[in-house]
Write a protein that binds this DNA or RNA. Structure first.
Lengths: 335, 335
DNA sequence: GCAACAAATGCAAGCGTTTTTATCTATCTT
DNA sequence: AAGATAGATAAAAACGCTTGCATTTGTTGC
């Protein structure tokens, strides 16, 4: 007694129609007489027939599945994007194949290959820089791709982000306005253009506008993690900084606690602005002033854009910038 | 110039062998002469052939895909489990179809149906109580299922957890030992047996052992969220509690801040023990004493168990309890 | 009542693999 | 040297569905 599956053929026989008709009913094709539709539906119900998505995928070349590449699912930033992606995907009846491509363990290209083999209809890519081999792999597959919270300096690939340059510039200017001359830039990997190009540029632009010399020794590159934040505090302090822009909330929270735990008064003696406005910014004391990105929306809009691509709809704008703002909390002195 | 896919047939022709032989090579079947294997591999390389997983799935009845049902991907608890699941899945060459089934928006059964339609080889289920209709759906599909961090009182379905009864009992006893007579039990949904049966039982057992009467007005049922934690603080305080067991870290962190922000001294005036030992417990001040669950491992072991089921290996133990402990931090008075 | 047309249905060829069965080809045995 | 045996390979039938095309049925107008 094996897993006795009932197929479209069984339904067809039982309803005395052809497989084609059953298929039409199942797929909501309007070219079916109401009474035959009724009849078929009744048999489907009776036999408890469930279409096999794999067979469907093979026959139709559409799997109603999208791949989502995420660097670290436990990082609230990415998880929040994923939530938006998921909701919109569900809305449009797509399933998500999730794969994490954390720098170390799972190499992007391997992961990508396994996802593409599954014939996904589209792909959302988050995190990390896209290198040439990855780009080539994507091109070759001809699968629509959208980057979420991730930047492609060549603007070849569709993407949804905020204006990182402007956001960081504003944040930095804010710190300058409150009297800081030595502002640290505490960042994740600089080889990710989002940091190394966009955010850094905003930081530099604000300095330049205030005629403060850019000092490379105030740039601290580390990884996105709580521990890394704690660990980098001392170095930043010793470099003489009196404020910092931090490019990730986990990192910022670790950094903040690194300071707080050594008795530094924040914001009185040191100001911090972080970048993602996740729940973490509200959990710590003092609460963190943050650049606010519409995380959920970035994910949602990215997925929506992808659905358009998959439907071969006309896309007017494939590089989307969503609005940002700065939420003032208690890690900065009121201005 | 459509997406010109090259198939196993192309490879076979080019290498002047049959499709069957190519298939054997691709699948590492040993019954191929080394020189033919070589020849075929060369052609595969040359044509840059990639097997189509969908066709494979249809022909072999194995998709090398597992479904993962998660209540809320932004909750670090579940995300941590997912990380463990993902790593082991990747190790065994499975892809993950992720679907979130948050109580409200996405109904479990709908989600389940769409995942099962995709012919997943197995399923990891997290969160929420499994009701009869869900159970029926699972049974009918004959797909192996493992619960991760989720309990099935009937023990019919494989699962990986800690001993919640014992853990909560210990934690409660600890609070009793430090002098508390009125200990609140701040919990997520009680209709989830993990709360309503296991944890509550542990809480009651500790009280009973200390001859403290169980007082239902000290049980606070709410949802797993930061806001909910903040919101419930007042009620708990007014109920006269001097300590609390909280069953989720986000909830606990909100609860803690609810207290801290109203000037209550923790742990001097109020003690808190939370349940998941996620990063959040270290981020807040004071840091939270917590029951420690091996989150990553729960996910990893669950996935490993699932692989065994999918291989139809003999399972000696389908209800697995991993060890727990209590990590003492600063939300409890040293004992 | 019949031609002309549109709507509904059926037929059957795929989709790209795996897998069973059969066929071949070496290599041993004695 | 012939028969036996095991290992390689080939042929072809699934797998469960979609879809283009052909055919049938039903409708409409005159």
């Amino acid at each position: 007694m094996e897993k006795q599956t009932i197929t479209i053929y069984d339904v067809a026989r039982e309803a005395s129609v052809s497989m084609a008709t059953v298929s039409r009913v199942v797929n909501g094709n309007p070219n079916v007489r109401p009474d035959t539709r009724e009849k078929v539906l009744k048999v489907i119900e009776k036999l408890d027939y469930r279409p096999n998505a794999v067979a469907r995928g093979l026959a139709s070349h559409r799997t109603t599945t999208v791949g989502v590449i995420i660097p670290d699912i436990t990082n609230i930033f990415y998880a929040s994007l994923a939530r938006g992606i998921n909701d919109v995907a569900t809305m449009y009846k797509y399933n998500i194949i999730l794969a994490s491509a954390d720098e170390g363990k799972h190499k992007v290209n391997t992961v990508l290959e396994s996802i593409l083999a599954k014939q996904v209809d589209g792909l959302i890519y988050m995190g990390q820089n896209i290198d040439d081999s990855t780009r080539k792999e994507l091109d070759r597959s001809k699968t629509p791709v959208v980057l979420a919270g991730t930047v492609d300096p060549t603007a070849k690939i569709g993407s949804v982000n905020i204006d990182y340059v402007a956001a960081v510039k504003e944040a930095t200017a804010r710190l300058i306005a409150s009297g800081n001359q030595h502002i640290a830039f505490v960042t994740g990997p600089l080889n990710d253009p989002i940091n190394g190009q966009y955010r850094l540029k905003g930081y530099q632009a604000a300095l330049a506008e205030a005629k403060i010399a850019y000092d490379e020794s105030l740039v601290f590159e580390t990884e996105y993690s709580y521990r890394a934040g704690e660990a980098v505090w001392d170095a930043v302090k010793h470099a003489g900084a009196t404020a910092a822009i931090v490019t990730d909330d986990e990192l910022a929270v670790g950094f903040l606690n690194g300071g707080v735990d050594t008795g530094v008064k924040i914001p009185e003696d040191f100001e911090i602005i972080t970048s993602n406005n996740t729940m973490l910014t509200e959990i710590v004391r003092p609460k963190l002033t943050s650049i606010a990105q519409p995380l959920y929306d970035i994910g949602a809009v990215a997925m929506r854009l992808l659905t358009k691509m998959m439907n071969k709809e006309e896309i007017d704008q494939n590089t989307i910038l969503l609005p940002h703002s700065i939420i003032t909390r208690n890690s900065t002195r009121s201005k």
